[in-house]
Each structure stands twice: as structure tokens, then as C-alpha cells.
Nucleic acid binder design. Sequence first.
DNA 1: TATGACGTTTACGTTAACTTCAAGAGCGGA
DNA 2: TCCGCTCTTGAAGTTAACGTAAACGTCATA
Lengths: 134, 134
Amino acid sequence: MTKKDQLFSVTDLSREFGITQRTVRFYEEKGLLFPRRVGSARVFDYRDKARLTLILRFKRLGFELTDIKAYLDLYDADSTGVTQLKMGHRTLTRRIKELKSQMKDLRLTLKELEALKRESANQLMELGINSTDL
Amino acid sequence: MTKKDQLFSVTDLSREFGITQRTVRFYEEKGLLFPRRVGSARVFDYRDKARLTLILRFKRLGFELTDIKAYLDLYDADSTGVTQLKMGHRTLTRRIKELKSQMKDLRLTLKELEALKRESANQLMELGINSTDL
DNA sequence: TATGACGTTTACGTTAACTTCAAGAGCGGA
DNA sequence: TCCGCTCTTGAAGTTAACGTAAACGTCATA
């Protein structure tokens, strides 16, 4: 029971998660975190840490803060977690689709760029300039 | 010689290229285009159109406007095109490298998302909910 | 008592590429 | 002369995720 009783400051969290203090406060502004207050100072507990872990994880996966908030709000509203699971599944599916489409675009763009590169290399050759000299 | 003598208004270009009029003017502000003036009205010719084509093409390939400007400025300065070619080749190489790294990131993220999706599908299964019903 | 560490708030700045808005000039036609 | 159309300009707003700075409070310690 000792771990669950531990409390943390903004500085603690920022160190532990490798983010700035401003970021922690910003997340509160945006409704992603809601620490208790002791006087005016923010005080976080293990639940806040769990939330922050989730926030950063989904951020890394390319979700926007507003989406993450929507997701976490559900988690708060539905203790069973079913709604959250359903939504999570849909969100994941959608995001995966987005990323796949993005991959496709990337591949096409890459092709085009490489064609251009070959072209410019050829033109340089014709001028007697070796493209490895650049 | 008739085609080369044709002149165009902001409206003409915006229609032809599918961008807004404000965007055409914006590109001039940024030094990407420099149409002649008749009174205060902008007048574009075939060269301006060629530039705009290049601008939009490189934009589509993910280049920033400042980079595109730098590139086009070289084109104006060096009529032989050699400098332009050299720079173009370097720029392309760099951009290709960026995109490849981006592809790698995407692949990893995609993997992780798909793992999460499988996980959430399993959890839904355990609750007797078919994930195809979502 | 002074210093430094740590905490707070408010609010403007950053970046890119525009978009939107407001206001006005100029011109041809009925 | 008024209408409508096209063109202009400058300024402010948009989006995301914070960064940065000012100006202040509080507490422990030397």
C-alpha cells in the first residue's frame, strides 16, 4: 500500500517521463490530467501517472491530444471499460488505415523523387560532372 | 507564338491550378512568383505558369516553400542550370533519405498499432463481443 | 537575512501555409 | 449614376503542442 500512497510534484513527473514541466501543466490545461491541489501546487498520484503513461504512449503512436482526451474521458465515464474497448478498437482501425494510406503515398513520392534524382544525375553526367563529387 | 503571348489573371491561375486566389498572391509575397503589373493588377505569362507548375510539384513532394524558393532563385541566377542541377541533386538525396527514415518509423508504428488492435479484439472476445460488430 | 530551489499564473511567441475578413479601387454596362 | 464584377491590400485567424518570459510566492537552510 505504500506505492499507491506516493505523491508527486510537477517536477517529479517531468523528470520521470522526460518531458518539461510546462508540458505537464499544458496537459492539465487541455483536460488530460487533473491533479489534486495542495494550496496552489499540483499534486499527482499513481492514477495520474498511469494516465500520463497512456497519453505519452498514444502520442508516440501519432494520435492528437484531443483524440487522446476523448479516449481517456470514456475511460473515466465507463468503469467497465467496454465502451472504451469498443472505441479503442475503432480508433485503432481507423488510425491503421490512415497510416497505411500514408505509407502508400510515401512509396509513390519516393519513387518519383528517385526518378528525378536519376534524371539529374544523368544531366550532370552529360556535363561531365560526376554526381558522386557533390 | 500565340500561346507564349497569352496572359493570365490571378483568377485564371487559381482556376487552372486549383488553388485560391489568395494563395497565388501569397506565393508572390513569398517571392516565389513575380508577375508583371498592369496598374495594380497582376498579370502572368507562360513563364509564371511554368514556375507555378514547379512550385506545386515540389510542394506535393513534400518540400517547404522556402526550399522551393531557394531552388527557383538558383534557376533564375544561373542560366546554365548547372548550379541548379547540383543543388537539386543534393536536395533530392537528402529528401529521399528523410522519407526512407519516415517509412521506417511508419512501419514500426504500424506494427505496434496492429498489436494493440489484436489485443483489444481479444479482450472484446472475452466479453463475448464480436469485434466485427463494431 | 539572504540565497536558491521549487512552485505558481498570465499571456504572448513559435512554425507553416494558408484562409477569412474587411474595406476599397476601378471599370464596363444599362 | 448606380450596379455588379474583378481586382487590390492589410490584418487577423487557424492548427498543434508546447516554449518562453515576466513577475511573484514559499520554504529550508546557511
